[in-house]
Amino acid sequence: MQYLALIYAEDGAGPQYGTPEFEGYMAGFFAANKAYEEAGVMRGGNALQATSTATSVRIRDGKTETMDGPFAETKERLGGYYLLDCKDLDEAIKMAELIPTAHHGTIELRPIMEIPGDG
């Protein structure tokens, strides 16, 4: 089953760019990537640019409305994701533990909906 691991953290929380701690933080991601490849669970993943670059789009009464900023104003921002193919939630939790952001932010695991007759 595929799980989307959504990586949330508060702005400014965790190691900051340019500090030695940040290098360790990034090394954590490289280690996670490697572990996912080795376990054969990696189906994709990316880091996202800051929420200040986000645009929200919706259509109301046939008219497209665009808004500056993310959909939900929350303290924790979505910063990136992984798509992982795991045998069950226990394995997915173990994989999520490897994401270094879990130490100061939150990883939300969402199972991908399986549409019958698909693939």
Binding site: K87, D88, L109
Partner: peptide, 8 residues
């Protein structure tokens, strides 16, 4: 069932 919490 949906998140596949294992029966184990």
């Amino acid at each position: 069932s949906a998140a596949r919490i294992p029966y184990r």
